[in-house]
């Protein structure tokens, strides 16, 4: 059992003030083996926090990060190949959202929007089973036509986007108006991945909704014939 954390789009302080205390508690050191961060870490403090979570931290470059981190990363964990990319390089952006996920909460949704299709094309091109990408407003999982999975952990801080509507028409710049913060934890076992999506409740910060999904890598013999 290997635990892999997919997390990213912190935007502290650019869009949001802090990582929620509840998440800090959940991300205690020593439990998680690998961290795949989709970028937009922005502050050294958050990076230090990630490096405390695990020794093996991979960070892809978000649009607000400096040039220190790579655009794409490929990591093999057990029998699964993971790709990591923030996703702002993957055009078009249109229709990027987590709606598909909430519509079919109990199962992994099929690819829907142009952006997610482009992400799947990138996943195929990189030759990875699971692509971890950012730019979603909350955790979203989408499977490809022929297998493969795109995991979008959403924003760990619930950082809002300028295009997001306000929950009320009160002028309140505090973090309360942000989206629901979330991340995805993956339990990798051989070619089998159990995914847990964590979403913090917007009204009760102590409450975290966890949902479980399963991904099985398709039998590689089919594609091996082609290679």
């Amino acid at each position: 059992m290997v635990l892999v954390l997919a997390i990213g789009d912190f935007y502290v302080p650019h869009r949001c003030c802090e990582l929620a205390q509840r998440f800090r508690e959940l991300l205690a050191p020593g439990k998680i083996q690998h961290v795949l961060c989709t970028g937009n870490v922005c502050s050294d403090e958050i990076e230090a926090l990630l490096r405390r979570v695990s020794f093996d931290v991979h960070i892809a470059r978000g649009e607000l990060d400096g040039p220190a981190w790579p655009e794409r990363v490929v990591v093999s964990i057990e029998q699964i190949r993971f790709g990591l990319c923030h996703g702002h390089q993957v055009l078009p952006w249109s229709g990027r959202t987590g709606d598909a996920f909430t519509a079919t909460a109990s199962s992994v949704s099929a690819e829907a929007t142009a952006h997610v299709r482009a992400l799947h094309a990138l996943r195929r091109d990189m030759g990875v089973d699971v692509l971890v990408a950012g730019m979603a407003e909350r955790p979203a999982l989408t499977s490809g036509k022929l297998g493969g999975l795109v995991v979008q952990p959403g924003s760990a801080t619930g950082a809002p986007r300028v295009t997001d509507p306000w929950p009320s028409d009160k002028a309140d710049n505090s973090c309360k108006t942000s989206n629901a913060p979330g991340f995805v934890l993956m339990d990798v076992h051989g070619s089998h991945v159990t995914l847990y999506t964590y979403v913090q409740d917007r009204d009760d910060p102590q409450q975290v909704h966890v949902e479980k999904h399963v991904f099985e890598r398709p039998d590689p013999t089919a594609s091996a014939l082609l290679l």
């Binding site: 949001c16 003030c17 403090e45 710049n173």
Partner: peptide, 18 residues
């Protein structure tokens, strides 16, 4: 100094007004 300035940057999140 950047960590301190990140705090300064967050003053805007204290503003509850338009």
């Amino acid at each position: 100094y950047e960590a301190q300035q990140h705090l300064v940057a967050q003053i805007v999140y204290l503003l509850r007004t338009d």
